[in-house]
Amino acid sequence: MKAKFMVSAALASTAVFTIASAGTAMADSAGDCPDQAACLYYNSNLGGASAIDNGDNIANYGTWKFYYTQSGSGGQNGYLQYVKNNAASISSGNDPGGYRVFYNSNYAGVYQTIGGNSWANLNSQLKNQNASGRHL
């Protein structure tokens, strides 16, 4: 009986470790964002379609669309939707200075800064309320 319990406990802890590892692997990554770029994603947690800013500052996301899709994580969600007021998360790729997302066009209003080589879900003021962004 004791041996069965130990095997069951070992299997359960392995399953929990595997699930936790899979969850943190994405959290530790800046996603598939190219070097020196910033990527905005339609879904939280770097999911859904993405738009890539390769170094240009975008004063108005109004004509910029989510063009890139990925497998898994709702990869098709948001495809060809406008980025303005539709982004939920962002990755700064390996951009050393990071990236700043603004509530208003022309880099105005409330903003959120994402440090270099990191990612974040946009905060409650900016999730689906984003209009411009710039590299720092």
Rank of each mutant, 00 (worst) to 15 (best):
G93P: 05
K84S: 09
G47E: 10
K65T: 10
A88D: 00
G133C: 10
A10V: 04
Y99H: 06
A22P: 01
A37P: 02
G23I: 06
C33G: 04
S29K: 04
G78E: 07
K65C: 00
S21L: 11
K2T: 11
S132Y: 11
Q70G: 06
N123Q: 05
D32M: 05
L46N: 08
D35I: 02
S73Y: 15
Y79H: 15
A131L: 01
Q36C: 00
A49F: 06
T14M: 14
K127R: 12
A10H: 03
Y103C: 02
M6R: 09
G78T: 05
A30R: 04
Q36T: 05
R134T: 07
S21T: 14
A3W: 13
S13Q: 07
V7W: 03
A10S: 10
T113M: 07
S73V: 02
P34G: 07
Q81K: 15
N60D: 15
G133S: 14
T63C: 02
G98S: 06
S124C: 00
S73N: 12
Q125H: 04
Q112R: 04
I19W: 15
R100G: 02
V16A: 15
N94E: 14
S132C: 10
F17D: 04
N45A: 04
Y42D: 03
A120S: 15
L80K: 13
G115Y: 01
N106I: 02
Y61Q: 01
N77C: 04
A38W: 01
L11M: 14
G133N: 07
G74T: 06
Q36Y: 05
L11I: 09
Y67T: 12
Y41D: 03
Y107C: 06
L136H: 13
N86T: 08
A9Y: 09
A3N: 12
V101E: 06
A49D: 06
N54F: 10
Q129F: 09
Q125S: 15
A108V: 00
D28N: 14
Q125K: 08
T14A: 15
T14F: 13
D56C: 05
G115H: 04
R100D: 09
M26K: 04
Y61F: 15
G109C: 03
I58C: 02
K127V: 13
G48H: 12
W64Y: 15
N43K: 14
A49M: 12
C33N: 07
K127T: 13
Y99W: 15
I90P: 08
A120M: 08
N106S: 12
Y107L: 09
F102I: 12
A37T: 05
S89W: 09
L126K: 07
T69K: 11
Y67K: 10
A27R: 13
G93D: 04
Y42P: 00
P34D: 08
G72R: 07
G31R: 01
A108Q: 15
G75Y: 02
I52Q: 10
P96S: 15
